[in-house]
Computed example of a mutant assay.
Amino acid sequence: MLKVILSVAFLAIISTAIGYQQLQSTLQSPLNISESTQFEVKKGTGFNKLCQQWQAKNWVESCWRYQVIAKLDPTLTDLKAGLYELSNTSVITNIKKINQGQQISFSFTIIEGQALRDVLANIKNAPNL
């Protein structure tokens, strides 16, 4: 009986250690992009759909590990729509950026005395307005 208890305890410790190691590697795995990239999260996009979009672009290998982490930390699933600049930092860091709504800001300058038609033309030609 003691051998059975010790065997079960040993297997539980080994399983926990392996699970912890996998969790740590998932938390630290980078988003597979070579340079900073703009990415638009559309209104109504859920966590699973976001992960599938990233998987289709080969930015992540599989979604199941991130889905497990999202089950452990449900705040990660509250995504905000907008345009974000993603970097090759960890996947979780990029998800938290989207979760916190840290969108890209763009500026536009109107020069004093500039004609309205020139301002409108500049707005029309501005790429992100």
Rank of each mutant, 00 (worst) to 15 (best):
P30E: 04
S87G: 11
T45M: 15
I110M: 06
A115F: 00
T37W: 04
I13G: 04
I18W: 01
A12P: 11
L120P: 09
G82W: 12
P30Q: 08
I5G: 01
D118S: 10
D78V: 10
E112W: 07
G46L: 12
T75A: 13
I33Y: 00
A121L: 02
N122G: 04
Q52P: 02
K57V: 01
Q52N: 06
F10W: 05
I13H: 08
L11M: 15
Q53D: 08
S36F: 02
I98G: 09
I98C: 11
I69R: 07
A70H: 10
E85G: 02
S105V: 03
I92Y: 02
V41C: 01
Y66F: 13
Y66V: 03
Q67S: 09
G101R: 11
S25V: 04
P30N: 07
C51F: 12
S36G: 06
A9V: 14
R117G: 00
P127D: 14
P74D: 11
I69M: 14
Q114Y: 02
G82E: 13
P74L: 07
T77H: 11
F106T: 11
S36C: 03
G19M: 11
L2D: 11
I104F: 08
E85N: 04
T37V: 02
Q103F: 02
T26V: 15
S107L: 04
Q24W: 03
A17K: 08
A121H: 05
V68S: 09
P127L: 13
A70T: 10
V119Y: 00
N128S: 01
L2R: 14
T109A: 12
T89E: 05
D73F: 13
E40Y: 10
E85F: 04
P74Q: 13
L31P: 07
V91H: 06
K57M: 05
F108V: 07
Q114N: 04
N128P: 01
N58K: 15
K42M: 12
L116M: 13
K3L: 11
K71F: 12
G113W: 09
N88L: 03
Q67P: 05
N125Q: 00
K49H: 12
C63V: 15
V60H: 00
S62M: 03
T26R: 12
R65P: 04
Y84G: 11
Q103K: 06
Q52F: 02
S107Q: 05
N88R: 07
I110P: 03
Q55M: 14
I33V: 02
T89Q: 09
A81H: 06
